[in-house]
Design a protein around this nucleic acid. Sequence first.
DNA 1: TCTTTTGGCGAGAACGTTCTCACATATCAG
DNA 2: CTGATATGTGAGAACGTTCTCGCCAAAAGA
Lengths: 394, 394
Amino acid sequence: MLLDLDEGHFRLPFPANQISLFCLVICEKDELLSSKSKATIADVARVAGVSTATAGRVLGGYGYTSEEKKAQVLKAAHDLGYRPNALARSLITGKTRTLGVVAGDIQNPFYASVIRGISNVADANGFGLLITNSDEIPAREIHAVELLAQKQVDGLIVTPIDTRKARHLFNLKAMGMPLVLIDRAVGGLMVDRVATDNVAAAEQAIRHLIGEGHRLIGIVAELVDENFMSLDDFVAHAIAGDPIESETLYPSWQRLLGYIRAHRIAGLTVHPRLIMRAGSYSAQAAEAAVPPVMTSPNRPTALFTTDGTMSEGTMRALTTLKLSAPEDLSLVCFDDLDWMSFLRPGITTISQPRLAMGEAAARMLLERVRGADYPSRTVLMPAELIERGSVSRI
Amino acid sequence: MLLDLDEGHFRLPFPANQISLFCLVICEKDELLSSKSKATIADVARVAGVSTATAGRVLGGYGYTSEEKKAQVLKAAHDLGYRPNALARSLITGKTRTLGVVAGDIQNPFYASVIRGISNVADANGFGLLITNSDEIPAREIHAVELLAQKQVDGLIVTPIDTRKARHLFNLKAMGMPLVLIDRAVGGLMVDRVATDNVAAAEQAIRHLIGEGHRLIGIVAELVDENFMSLDDFVAHAIAGDPIESETLYPSWQRLLGYIRAHRIAGLTVHPRLIMRAGSYSAQAAEAAVPPVMTSPNRPTALFTTDGTMSEGTMRALTTLKLSAPEDLSLVCFDDLDWMSFLRPGITTISQPRLAMGEAAARMLLERVRGADYPSRTVLMPAELIERGSVSRI
DNA sequence: TCTTTTGGCGAGAACGTTCTCACATATCAG
DNA sequence: CTGATATGTGAGAACGTTCTCGCCAAAAGA
């Protein structure tokens, strides 16, 4: 019967109204049903009086369709409140239009901004974002990656925790999964990467302090112990000017390297006792590392913190020690957090383009998802020294 | 041939080794292939010499399987590097084990924390998180909700932008989609919700200031104009003590209500000129709203800011005005941001349990996802006044 | 007039799972 | 020995799309 009507409709514009009415009846009935169980392409096709193939064509926007049938299908779809099932679509196309992100901790302003950047380009391109936190725990990273892979994300953005062992990431790459690394590199893993030029940035910060006359400069850094050599050896090598493969170093080690390099260039001696090592990625650890050095007899006249978390811990420590910049000491931080600009004398800091980093990473990833296959690229973003009031001339 | 082996194996334990070897050969061959195109249940079944049904049973963990076949399948799966396709699974089960979140802006510490809370319980329960930002723009919220619905999330957590018009949310609920609201309510939409008890919290803050002797207290609030009545009318009603339906009010209006209520209870007059309205959800707007009042002849002795963004803008304004708490004025903020605790005299603030709010919301949502159908609940979280050093006695 | 092309359509096979059957076999009570 | 129950198993139908075919017109080229 539906077919008959359809053929009549095909020849004459006249019975179209009947069809419309007919549709409406069906729709209203179906709508009651579908208010719970949602309408499928088959339902739309039935109501519109066409095959599922045709309905699929107009709804999916592929292949040819006449204006006539197109209108019918569209109307039916609208009446039924049809909503395409992305699952079914993805299953057959093999594309989910979803990107996976495994970050350290969304609460950390660094990750929050980076993710925001990723999000910006993702949804400008109609991609969804599946986000997980690793809390810097390798097992959690592995688990997250596995989860995202099972959910068939089109690509993955990761801030890898272990720069040496990362079997899961190598596997991923071997499986052909587009992958972009942020902030950290993994030795031997040739994939796109975006990071700050940490060595240069730290060097710039220290050079600034040296330029202002400081000779005793402390550095508070996480320096988690996952390196091939001990801190002492590392420092010794760096002071000696031995070439160090800095690419796969953890950011805090890279920044320490910049710190040492600035000293070396200026002909200053590096005092290992001024290296305040938190040992873990937490403000508490930083807060604990600062007092011993800052209450010692020959305390530094300036402090350099290597990231937002260290800055926070350091600020806490300084507050309880009743030391304030720039009167009692000079301070340069890494990463520009919102409060640094409205503290009474603003805090001089190295600002990394977090948002842009996320955006760049997402853009690179999307290129890969779309099939680009040039060799893996590393984008080193420049960081900028923002002078505010926390540094005094000595 | 495979069948023969299988049957032989079925009767005697002896040929099992042959099978293993046989498997290995196949595996190695397939592994080369599958390093690119991934293995499916059918592949695993073929290698293990069982039906896809059986393979599915052991891999999916449903139905009965003998230990023997189970081991074979597991081995085959391991050798092939089998990874279940969550898409296909979800398509048939109708469950994605994925939750959708549409927040204002991940970069905002409030949302970042709330999302972290959601994330905590989500991945403790094996759920993924699809996260989007609305930037407080209704069209973007609608778009995000649609995207997430198409991706078939099992449930949705939303901070609704428009508390009056929210057709998309009503639709969602009618379709049976589990839904939890955070921070804001939608008039007439009966779904679970978690929020801070804003009126009480603000009242507590103001009462504290009044207790310290302040009589001229300014409030800086966003107070976006999407209300049924004008600010003046609202204030007039509140002062008169008229009953106001505060549930569906925007948080900043609720906090203003608490501000007024505290005045009323203490018998103090509310001066409309001390209400600094930003008019939009940005630190810049707040920064602009503060100076006119703070440079006026009869300026307030205390300030209350209604959220983190307002606090930031206010701090900026105060910094440029060279006014500092508690010397030049007293200050109570809303929402405890990290810098408030390490500013020189810490900032007294109302702390809302952001993480717990996210966790509570996610837990409620999961209950709904699992089929709980008690009437909709509203969880009002208590906020806590944290006294630090930004308030002085007058 | 006879091909070829082109737009337009529907049947039906994918995609990779789960799940319902029907059917075996083993165990046990009666 | 009969039937009931529990445990295994495989064939094949879902799920809701996309996509490859064929088929059929009508238009166009020869």
